[in-house]
Design a protein around this nucleic acid. Structure first.
Lengths: 312, 312
DNA sequence: TGAACAACATGAGGCACATTCATGGCTTTG
DNA sequence: CAAAGCCATGAATGTGCCTCATGTTGTTCA
């Protein structure tokens, strides 16, 4: 019909801009550089001869033209989604099984919302959680007990399809007024005299032990609890210190229940990956799930960094 | 949202495929090669794992998946159109003036439908027809008496924006059983003893005279009439022969009122162009008009060939 | 029946255009 | 006031779409 430089990519970009509230974050969500998004915006604004949003205000307020394009983006996205769903039905590819195995406790924080959204999009897919912790998670894929595994380490195997998710900082949690809270960051030795409060899991699964304390020859007492709230409670009442993902405790820190410090001068960072068999990686609902995980996590977890896109 | 290789280009392609009824014609309409459209189709079918339409049948019948995508294409196209219209209103670029000057009589056949469609799309644009024939049509642009001129010859001037429209064959029209109808094609000399029936216009404006007869030194008697029907009538009743665009008389020929023959062994071809001032070429409704002309002409005029696209 | 033709498929390669890279200006924050 | 975000912009780069050339199939004439 009419020649228009408008493409779906632009609509997706505008939606991401609204969701994330900034050009750079939108770029991350789209697996692009900030520059690319900026160029796209400029091209659109040039074409319509009007600004699309007010840059100097956060959250950015869209102009009427911008709002109209966003409305288009929404309706088109909805139509697109409906179409693809119907087509999957027609082709018979809409049904299937997706069993997800998880290595880390905190993962449930973002996994549940993601699974909910997937259930909406793919009602015909049997979605299961493979519970319990396994020494060799990739074995679950090969023995056909799971279609997707969440890992907190890049596996050595190259015969599985790896989908980078995001990167986050693991920070030490201290009671207010704790002696160590005076330091700008914590050294491994600082843990020696403390009780380390963790989730119930083998040492190997706990990043701060595997990657910081054990290499330094430090083996503090351990105490564990299933619930993040309980861990925070124990820390606050000076029964020990913990090392948790920043997003998991941001709320408690903000409210002043506890304080947090980096681990080591550069901080300690964890990364999460999803792994599937190569064959499963081509299934549309698996691809959709990866995308949904990245998006929901990025939007709900503060301070995380998406992996595998245009920037590290 | 979901990563989908589907882009607007694909939807436009499918719509064109439906309108034109064939891959190659769709390609022409999209200003692409047949190969490009074929590749696009293959990519889509590969992605959805299903055929989109039955190739060996004309008109091509779409599979359920193809039909569903076409429905999407229609709704998205409508949404897109509505959005752009609203934005033009917001920006204030929806209003303007478009005076069209025409050189040839038959042009009205396709110009009227195109102007009707433009009026729908751009209700705020003042659409006028500059009547009468002018010796120097480009002068109308420079003296600001028209925004767009239809030409049947590539102008020498390079300071106007030229928009190629389409190419068509001009064929000789003869009464059934006419002596010349025995020939596979007509030579210039064949016109010498005949009366040439034309529209009322100077010799310069009549392609067969300017490009065939005059160069050959042949100057047949002339007789003219305003209406195509009347010309056909005169030819049928053996008052003379005519030379008209194939599309303009296809109906009469099909019904057997008259017969047609190529002019010269290779045939005589006419080409039509639209010209505007460079500034006017950037106006959205002018661009839209060009597109609309090409599309409506291509869909309604039999045997024409779009110009300026991926193929000559 | 076969040749000529039309329509579509397919692989390789070129080229346009979106994206990245590198940098600078601007605002915010401690 | 330094330091860090955030965004804009020009030039370089690379990816993917399209074209080109050719092969294949189906169709229409002698």
């Amino acid at each position: 019909m009419a020649l228009s430089p408008l493409e779906l990519r632009h609509l997706r970009m505008l939606a991401a801009l609204r969701e994330t509230g900034s050009v750079s974050r939108a770029a991350q969500m789209l697996c692009l550089t900030q520059s690319a998004v900026s160029h796209q915006l400029r091209a659109l604004e040039e074409h319509y001869g009007a600004a699309l949003f007010e840059r100097k205000s956060s959250p950015p307020s869209f102009t009427p033209v911008g709002k109209r394009l966003l409305r288009l983006a929404d309706t088109v996205a909805a139509e697109l989604r409906a179409t693809e769903a119907e087509i999957q039905q027609l082709v018979g590819a809409g049904a299937g099984q997706l069993r997800v195995a998880v290595e880390c406790h905190t993962c449930f924080d973002w996994l549940m919302p993601a699974m909910d959204r997937l259930r909406e999009h793919w009602p015909e897919v049997e979605l299961d959680l493979v519970s319990g912790f396994h020494t060799e998670p990739l074995g679950l894929l090969r023995s056909d007990r799971a279609e997707l595994v969440i890992l907190h380490e890049r596996p050595a195997d190259t015969d599985v399809a790896l989908h980078p998710l995001f990167r986050f900082e693991i920070r030490a949690l201290l009671a207010r007024g704790h002696a160590l809270a005076a330091r700008p960051w914590l050294e491994p030795a600082d843990f020696a005299a403390e009780t380390l409060i963790t989730y119930p899991a083998p040492d190997d699964m706990i990043d701060v032990i595997r990657r910081v304390l054990r290499p330094a020859g430090v083996f503090p007492r351990r105490r564990d609890s299933e619930l993040t709230v309980a861990i925070v409670q124990l820390v606050a009442s000076r029964r020990g210190i913990a090392a948790l993902p920043g997003w998991a405790v941001a709320g408690y820190v903000e409210r002043g229940y506890v304080v947090e410090r980096p681990i080591g001068p550069e901080g300690l960072f964890g990364e999460l990956y999803a792994a599937t068999l190569p064959a499963a990686a081509t299934l549309p609902y698996v691809q959709d799930f990866i995308t949904v995980i990245r998006e929901t996590s990025f939007l709900t977890l503060p301070g995380i960094h998406l992996l595998g896109g245009a920037d590290g």
